[in-house]
Amino acid sequence: MSTPLLEIRGLSKRFGGLVAVDDVNFCIAPGETLGLIGPNGAGKTTLINLISGSVTPTTGEILFEGRSITSASAFRRARQGIGRTFQIMKPFPGLSVLDNVAVGALFGTSTTAKALRVAREEAREWLELMDLSRHADQRADELGGPDRKRLELAKAIAMKPKLLLLDEVMAGLNHVEIDDVIEAIRKVRSTGISVLVIEHVIKAVQSLADRLLVLHHGKQIIEGAPDAVLADPRVIEAYLGRRRA
């Protein structure tokens, strides 16, 4: 087997007395989509923050393309090819939708300084892909909910990452909008990049992910093919059982 794109070894994060992420181990292969599910407070967002570098781990190691990035700062990881979205969306509110995406094209993984004009042209293509072209000149804070989600996605893919971390991009959307976003993610995936999807909406992850990983109280309780994982009694108890209650 070739080197995994991302490898997580014994990763833990402690906030005071709370262990948010507890000895997690997994890999993501190039081109693979891994779904990360678990009840609220399971440590999903902390895990994404650890991988993207906005939080430093208490113990454990993160390898990207075989090299340790455990102590690299967030912007370096972004340049090496880790793009992310935020659960609480973080657009650049005062910039136009186009320029929001242009930031990704201008920085992101691009190593050469490109002209602003070129970055904006690239950004237009991403807006096209995300069906946002008609909003290009609006300010980002004027966008409605679903469009904001798409903008968050467009910003991340404009970085041309190798690995995309999606933190609950479907939360708060209705069924039609979820289908739209799933479609958008499929388009992104078809360009060959790996994706880590955190999601509460099980149906969405099930149809997207090649594999599923379940977190519960910061611990990883099972990992495997989506159907098998979702049928596992431990998962039903930890996650689905609780939702039914």
Partner: peptide
């Protein structure tokens, strides 16, 4: 106002966490 550097500064002003996560050496 017309450079990559300035664009980075504006991104920092608008949202510093997002700027860092998009590869800007804040």
């Amino acid at each position: 106002a017309h450079s990559r550097f300035g664009f980075g500064l504006i991104a920092i002003r608008e949202n510093e966490d997002a700027a860092a996560s998009m590869g800007i050496n804040t």
